[in-house]
């Protein structure tokens, strides 16, 4: 199963990102481990400069914005 990590210190955009990802998973009938990373030191282990960021199986896929369902779908495909 895929692991999706959402990196963000808990601002509104990070919550929206989580919601979009969960909805997309339901729409596509997929399952994944969703992990929220809120600790800034853990977040910075990935070399990113803007949050929220989405990490799929250890690879940073998106940074700095709330993805659309289409983008999440493409990422999971």
């Amino acid at each position: 199963m895929k692991t999706i990590k959402i990196l963000g210190t808990g601002c509104a955009k990070c919550k929206q990102t989580e919601a979009v990802i969960r909805e997309t998973l339901i729409d596509l009938g997929l399952e994944a481990n969703i992990e929220k990373v809120e600790d800034i030191q853990k977040i910075m282990e990935y070399d990113i400069m803007s949050t929220p960021a989405v990490v799929l199986d250890g690879v940073v896929k998106m940074t700095g914005k709330v993805p659309t369902k289409e983008e999440v779908g493409a990422m999971l495909a």
């Binding site: 210190t9 808990g10 601002c11 990070c14 800034i40 990113i48 400069m49 803007s50 949050t51 700095g64």
Partner: peptide, 15 residues
């Protein structure tokens, strides 16, 4: 600018 991004930005620049 989003104030929650200031730390990641700072670290990113330092790195």
């Amino acid at each position: 600018f989003c104030s929650c991004s200031s730390v990641p930005l700072f670290i990113g620049f330092v790195r």
